[in-house]
């Protein structure tokens, strides 16, 4: 039977999302397809699959990404789909532990891709924040501009908080990487 569940995860909580998917699988609800804030599960044996997700640099349709996805598939994993540049894989638990990264360097590279995405979001959002603020205080005094400026500012703060969370994760990995590979 198919179950549809709506759930929201912040970009910087990708590890929580992964953990949730694996916990669902452990209960016998295995993810089969993904969409924007939407997850489709099917009933399977408990713990039949392990799940991993990853942010790719380019869109999943890009030839470079397609090459990577088919490489991962060749190692026994199944590609379930994508949301923007996030791709979702699963592999049967009986083929051993499923990981996408097995050293600090590639884990740090992955975090750097997430950091870049958050920085772009912050930059894109900076313009409406400043522009609406300038309109309200300098030109129009329309409440709508003030509201828009406040919303943009709130988003900016939220993304900044996410950025700090990812930076902390990266710092932890870098510290471990100084002694071990």
């Amino acid at each position: 039977m198919r179950h549809k569940i709506h759930k929201w995860f912040w970009v910087w909580d990708f590890d929580k999302e992964e953990k949730w998917l694996n916990e669902m699988a452990a209960k016998g609800m295995s993810l089969v397809s993904v969409g924007w804030c939407t997850y489709w599960f099917e009933d399977t044996d408990a713990g039949a699959y392990q799940y991993r997700l990853e942010l790719l640099e380019k869109s999943p349709e890009h030839p470079e990404s397609r090459k990577y996805i088919s490489f991962v598939e060749e190692t026994g994993a199944e590609y379930l789909g994508s949301v923007i540049n996030w791709v979702y894989f699963r592999r049967p638990t009986n083929s051993g532990e499923f990981e996408l990264h097995s050293d600090h360097a590639t884990r740090i590279k992955h975090l750097n891709r997430i950091l870049r995405l958050l920085l772009v979001l912050m930059l894109c959002n900076l313009y409406p924040a400043i522009y609406n603020g300038w309109l309200y205080f300098g030109v129009s005094h329309f409440t709508l501009n003030l509201v828009c400026a406040c919303i943009s500012l709130a988003v900016e703060l939220l993304v900044a908080a996410g950025l700090l969370i990812v930076l902390r994760k990266r710092r932890k990995l870098e510290r471990e990487g100084k002694l071990f590979e």
Partner: peptide, 10 residues
């Protein structure tokens, strides 16, 4: 040593 697909690809 268990290589993960992403690390191996890189």
């Amino acid at each position: 040593v268990k290589l993960a697909a992403g690390t191996l690809y890189g």
